[in-house]
């Protein structure tokens, strides 16, 4: 694989950047880097498994919601894992 021979750091950086970009789609409602200024809960520093569980519950409809089940269905399980890990690593 060209990337492995060339520059693994670079490939890693690209993944990290695309995850950061994906997480930034949440910031409009949940605050920049997940630090909420409103009544909608912040995500920064929240335990990864908790975020994944909530998103899965939205996705399946187990947890009732107005908008989140519609948005959660737009993300794959792998993407939810990535976003959750990213937010859990942000400082509150």
């Amino acid at each position: 694989m060209a990337v492995a021979v060339g520059c693994p750091l670079n490939a890693h950086a690209q993944d990290a950047n695309s995850i950061r970009g994906m997480a930034a789609t949440c910031a409009n409602c949940h605050g920049t880097e997940g630090r909420s200024a409103g009544t909608v809960p912040g995500l920064a520093g929240v335990d990864k498994t908790q975020i994944v569980q909530q998103m899965q519950d939205f996705k399946t409809g187990k947890r009732a919601s107005t908008i989140m089940q519609q948005l959660a269905r737009g993300f794959t399980d792998a993407q939810i894992e990535q976003i959750a890990a990213w937010f859990s690593a942000q400082k509150k």
Binding site: A27, N28, C29, H30, G31, T32, S36, A37, G38, T39, V40, T66, I67
Partner: peptide
């Protein structure tokens, strides 16, 4: 519904902070 009324105002606060704060 009223719940989304509170979400809408929260949305405004957060998106304004996301762009300007």
């Amino acid at each position: 519904n009223e719940l989304e009324g509170t979400y809408a105002l929260s949305w405004a606060k957060n998106i304004w902070a996301d762009m300007l704060g």
